[in-house]
């Protein structure tokens, strides 16, 4: 067994999600858009979750959305997050429809509200750029 990690766990791009991470580095929020029904989806899934079509295009999304819901984490799970406790875990609903787990930055825990409009605020790491969000 390896030692428990002390850094936050960063996603490792895989082949299917590579276009998302490449665009993120340029500050562009890319979604997959179904060519048949028009539904947007988060990368990377072969099939549209509305109609199961495999035809899609990459589209640049607005990077804007609202706080769907959030929690304030107090429990020590991963050592990499211990310095941040208590921190927010937030679900952002993008204006295009898809939702993603993220964290809000630039706002105190006490000021977070369901329905609050937010915009993407990219967090750059050496080989991956993460979509965090801040209040508009």
């Amino acid at each position: 067994m390896a030692d428990a990690p002390t850094e936050k766990p960063l996603p490792e791009p895989d082949e299917a999600s590579q276009p998302f991470w490449d665009s993120a580095e340029r500050g562009e929020f890319m979604l997959m858009k179904c060519s048949d029904c028009g539904a947007f989806r988060l990368p990377s899934r072969q099939h549209c979750d509305r109609c199961l079509s495999t035809e899609y295009t990459w589209e640049r999304a607005s990077g804007r959305g609202t706080v769907r819901t959030f929690g304030i984490m107090h429990q020590r799970y991963h050592p990499g997050f211990v310095p941040d406790l208590p921190y927010n875990v937030t679900i952002v609903e993008l204006d295009e429809g898809p939702r993603l787990p993220t964290n809000l930055v630039g706002v105190s825990n006490a000021a977070i509200r369901v329905g609050m409009p937010v915009v993407v605020d990219w967090e750059r790491h050496s080989d991956v750029t993460l979509p965090k969000f801040r209040p508009v």
Binding site: P9, L10, E12, D14, P43, S44, Y77, H78, P101
Partner: peptide
């Protein structure tokens, strides 16, 4: 939360947000 390997692809956004348990 104690998995030492990096999560693959977009599914990794969950752990990257500290969304555990």
């Amino acid at each position: 939360a104690r998995n030492p390997s990096r999560p693959k692809g977009m599914a990794g956004l969950t752990a990257a947000a500290g969304y555990f348990g």
